[in-house]
Simulated scan of single mutants.
Amino acid sequence: MDLPVMPPVKPMLAKTAAKIPAGMQYEAKWDGFRAIAFRDGDEIELGSRTGKPLTRYFPELVPALRANVPPRCVLDGEIVIARDGLLDFDALLERIHPADSRVRMLAETTPAAFVAFDLLALGDDDLMGRSTAERRDALAAALRDTAPPVYLAPATRDVELAREWFARFEGAGLDGVIAKPLNVPYRPDERLMVKVKHERTADCVLAGYRQHKSGPVVGSLLLGLYDGAGRLQHVGVCASFPMRRREELVAELEPLRMESAEGHPWAAWQDEEAHTRGRMPGAPSRWTGTKDLSWVPLRPERVCEVAYDHMQGDRFRHTTQFRRWRPDRDPASCTYAQLEEPVSYDLREVLAPPDELPE
């Protein structure tokens, strides 16, 4: 491989904002694996956000990229999997598997797509020093005739349309909106873009905590919600606390601490088969490896309000943010029914062939 931009390349990043800023280029925020795609003739390489190769996990994208992108180019984009018109992040996680036979089986049953939203090199030209607007024009021209499963990400410079996207696209499983300054070059690993994500709140049962890697202080709070059958399901964690607050929480939660998990709703957390019947902390995962998954069980008697941006099936997609304790709430009332459901929106409509970029 001999390209003007060579792997590995770390992608340009975004900082969080509460509102969509005016005067930028806007795109949907995809909930997948960020990837830089390199093509030099028949050679294809997919690099992750950290620069590690992803190619072996998505073999179906190799012929797709050969058929749909210029012979020599470097693209920034997102690997996604859709089921029934919705993005499915869990299906992506299943691909990171050591067995090549399983990866290839999944490539056939749940094939991935590549959504391109930036162009870093074309032919012998390094485009990273050019502005966002110039790169977008070059990308649209380069992928004018692309076909599924390779897509050109929709983009606009109309802030009102971006706000409409922010409201509508969540129903297809998208994360929010990305805003890109029009005149900046591509800067790997720098937060020059802006991301605006949805935020909602939920009242959750506090059912345990994990210790912090630095010592015997609270690392993360384990959160639960009751399902329709009255079972407490593990839905995620809350982990962003200053160190002093982590120390205070140990003493604050001591009256709820159980000597063992016996009698706790998640007592069977070490039983792999039990995880097929409900969500509990410590689920076996190829991501965790030898990581210590033990946790401190608490009597599920306290409720906390947390902010979250997105649900992935029956759990929070990302780490939640602690807002406050809710002593006025009965833990039994903390059910999935309180969660706001976004209006359904078919991903195929989001990825419909775009018109010329609106000014």
Rank of each mutant, 00 (worst) to 15 (best):
A337W: 06
V9S: 05
L253R: 00
P342H: 10
A229C: 03
T276D: 10
L86V: 15
R323H: 04
Q211R: 12
F322G: 01
E247V: 10
M1L: 13
D292Y: 11
D145Q: 13
P216R: 13
G282K: 01
P327H: 10
L122C: 01
D40K: 07
R72V: 02
D126Q: 07
R104C: 06
P281H: 05
S333Y: 00
N68R: 11
R95T: 03
D328C: 11
K15L: 07
G228D: 14
K180C: 01
R66D: 10
Y57F: 15
G219E: 07
W266A: 02
M1S: 14
R136K: 15
V205L: 11
T50G: 11
P149G: 14
M6E: 15
R257C: 04
E199I: 05
S333L: 02
L92Y: 10
R130Y: 13
A64C: 13
R348E: 15
V80E: 03
R72T: 00
P281V: 09
C334L: 11
R277M: 05
A99C: 05
H198L: 10
E305L: 01
D346Q: 12
R49C: 00
G313R: 06
E359S: 15
V184E: 08
A142W: 06
W287T: 06
W325F: 14
G236R: 01
A17W: 08
G208S: 06
K15N: 02
H310D: 11
H234R: 06
D76G: 02
K197D: 04
V74D: 04
L3T: 02
T110E: 12
E341S: 15
E60F: 14
P71E: 14
R144V: 07
G215A: 12
L65G: 06
E259S: 14
P331S: 11
M258W: 11
F169N: 02
R187K: 06
W287K: 13
P7K: 10
G230A: 13
A267W: 08
A28N: 05
L339D: 06
L232D: 07
Q338E: 09
Q233P: 01
F316H: 10
Y336K: 04
M128S: 09
M12H: 02
L256W: 09
Q211L: 12
L174W: 07
P281M: 06
Y226T: 00
A14V: 01
D175K: 05
S260W: 04
I96W: 05
P149C: 14
P111T: 15
R39K: 13
G23H: 13
A140Q: 09
A82Q: 11
K291H: 12
W287H: 14
G123E: 05
S131A: 12
W325I: 09
G236I: 00
P98L: 10
R200C: 01
G224H: 10
R49K: 14
A283I: 07
Q233W: 03
L293N: 11
L46G: 04
P216N: 12
M258F: 13
V205G: 03
V303T: 08
A91W: 02
W269G: 02
A116V: 14
Q211N: 13
F58P: 02
Q270C: 00
P70T: 10
V218R: 00
